[in-house]
Structure formats: structure tokens, C-alpha cells
Design a protein around this nucleic acid. Sequence first.
DNA 1: AATCCACTGGAAACCTAGGGCC
DNA 2: GGCCCTAGGTTTCCAGTGGATT
Length: 429
Amino acid sequence: MEKNRDYFEKDDPIFLNKDLLQISHLPDGERIIGRDEQLSNLANVLRPATKGNEPNNAFVYGKTGTGKSLCTKYLSRQLIDTAASNDVRVGFAYIDCLQDSTETQVIQSIGQVLNDSSNTEVHFPGSGLPTSEYYNRLWTVLDTLYDVVIIILDELDKLTDVDNVLRLLPAAGEAEKIRHCKLGVIGISNKTRFKQSLGDRAKSALCDREFVFPPYDAEELCAILEARSDAFKDDVLEPEVIPFASALAGQEYGDARQAMDILRFSGEIAQEENVSEVRESHVEKAHHEAEKNQLHELMQQLTVQSHRVLRSLVILDQSTRSDRPVKSTEVYSMYIRVSEQVGGRVLSQRRVRDLLSELEFLEIVEQRRKGAGRGEGNYMENHLLDNSETVLEALNEESDEIVSNIQPAESLENTNQSNLVSKNNDSDS
DNA sequence: AATCCACTGGAAACCTAGGGCC
DNA sequence: GGCCCTAGGTTTCCAGTGGATT
């Protein structure tokens, strides 16, 4: 590690090892703070695997930045080592369902991660096979190479065929799909209400052991940042910086990721200002930067068309003086104008409705269905959960489409006109 | 409490890209 | 190379719905 020191950072007056402030950085055991209870609970679930016995399944939930992924990954690595000393071959597949969002993709990814084609003579093509064939190949790999396998499905709520996956995977042993290998599944989600949408069998497979990761309080956030403060050079951090950053992150969700972002950005801002201490004023600026960064990361998952829909909503939001929510039909007619300006495909109204409810799921937009009264039908209200300026900034960073100055054509009080616009477009298409 | 209608969201049909198999 | 299959994204279709007004 020492050899890899980046020589370009030699003159850096602020950071010693910035990597410590990356969320992906997996710290040593003593640096996981405030999660002793969760760690030992999870360890109990996995313990049978160290002796080659069947581990339990579990369901983990908690908001973003509460250490869910960190703890499960950390334990899985430890498990592999412990088991290896008992001559038990443990495999561990961490799947982010954000990237692999369908049943086939998930099974294929698990296969690719665990497979060693030189020993199994099995391979996992990116597509072209029926789903059942992916399963069959996976069973072969498991039985050939492993005694126990732990599968971690992160962001489980993003998976479209959750019920199927959770029905087939944990039951593989019972159904005699695999004869030798034992299988444990850990599902991770940040949506509490997600559990209710699961089918009965999936629920019973996973949810009899469930663990909640509560948000960190400001004190714990403080300790977390302290533990990583050697990312900075000595005496760079003014004493009030870490408590202040923790307080800012704590007052929202208790999100450790955000706390670390704030601290890292604080250092970067100090760097840009060419000063050699990080001060409270830097933290304040960094806070805004961190919020934007989180939105920005959310938006990276979205398609170009989703960006356009969101942009349409932002334009409408900014042009209304009050907090008046925006109807889906208004969003659609704005979307059409945005699309006309930037060119490319124009999606149907139905599809745009789906994209809007996707934005709701990601907690970028809030939706509420309303009735307009006798003979007036009903409609969906949309409004942005974050400040529209911040969303726009993040949107502009993410997409290179330039949209200039669209004002809503109809006067804001006269919503009938917007209905007319959408009607015309309906009959066009 | 009954009414009314534009909008909603579920379901099915359709389209395209990508890959396996012979 | 040609045929066949599937996944994933989109459109088309339509029964159901919300709630102010009658």
C-alpha cells in the first residue's frame, strides 16, 4: 500500500489518504462504529456456515448510509477466512440489484461472480439463454465449487421479479436442485414498506430474521468521522469541523455516507481556496455540495428520458410562485416541448406516467392522487422533494442536453389549456 | 348519496436487440 | 447463415377511481 502513494498528492497540504473518506472503503473491524449489535446478530445468522452447515437467510433494512452493505460485506469476508481454516469452501456473491434489476440478470451475475470456468466447464453468456438454463448452470457451479454460498442482494427493492428469485434461491436445497452446497441469502433494502409488497413465500423465506439498522445519531457520526480523520494530515482539521459536519448530517437522516461526503468536500474546498486548514465555513459550503452530489448519484441511474421528465417538472416548479403541485398532464405537455427542443424520441403519456412514479420511488418526487370534482375527473399531483435549484444543478451536471428558457405557455390559473395541449398530442400519436 | 368524467394504472400486445443452436 | 428464443422497453387498450358538485 505504501508503495502506491500517489506522487501527485505529494504537495497536498490537506489530505494524507483521501481514500479513507470514500464510502466504498472497507475499514478494519474496530472502525465499524455503533453497529456491534447488528454485527453480532448477523454473525449468528451466518455462523453455521463456518462449519459447512446451512446458514440462515436474513433481511436487513435501514436508510441509506446506515452501514448495511458495509457490515454484510465485512462479515462475509471474515466468514470466508474463518471457514477456510476449517477446510470449508465458502463463496460469497454481492449483487447490487440496481445494476442487475431482473431475475435473469441477477442469476447470471451470481453465476459469473462464483464461477471458475476452468473447473466447471460452464459459462454464463450475457443473454440468449432461457432463465431456467441460467438457474441450472448456477446449480452446477455451486455444487462443483463450494460447500456454502452466501448471496447478498443489495437494493432488493429495485429487483423486478423479487418473488421469483426469493422463492427459488433459498429453496434450492429442498427442491434438490443442489445436492451438496448450502445456500444462504441476505436481502438488503432501504424501503421499510417494501416488505409488505413481497409474496408470502418470499416473505417467509427471508423475513423471519430481520435486522433494522437505525440512523446514526450525531455522536456516532462524530465517532465515525474521527475514526477516519487520518485521511487528513495532522492539525489540518480545526476542532469544530467534525462535530459540525456530524450535526449537519445528523439533522437530516443520520446518513454516514453524507457525513463523509461533507467532510471530504470540506477538505476539497479548503484545497481550492489554497488554505491549509479546514474550517467551519468550508463545512457549510460542503453541505450543499454533498446534497447535490447525492442527487447527482441518483440521477446517474436514470435514463435520458427520465432526465427530460424531471427537467420538465423542475421548469414547471420554478415557474410557479407558490408551492403549487404540478399535475401529471402538465408535466407531459412540458415534456413534449422539452423534447421538441432537444430532439429525439417522444414517449407516450402512459410511459411518462411510469417514469414519474419511478421518480417517486427514488424519493426525488412526491405524488398524491386527487379528484377534481364532479365531471372533472381525477389527477396526480407531483412535487419535488428537494429544492428545485439543487435538482437543476445536479441535472445539468448529469445530462449535456441544453434546454433554454422554456416558459409555460398557458397562464398558470388556466389549467384547461394544458389539458387541450395534451389532448391534441394524444390524437397526433 | 348519487353523479360525472379526465386521469390513473394494470394487462396485454408489440417491437427490438442480442445471443444460442443447428 | 438462418431460425428460434428471451428480456426489456414501450405503446395500446380499458376498467376503475376520486371527490366537488348536484
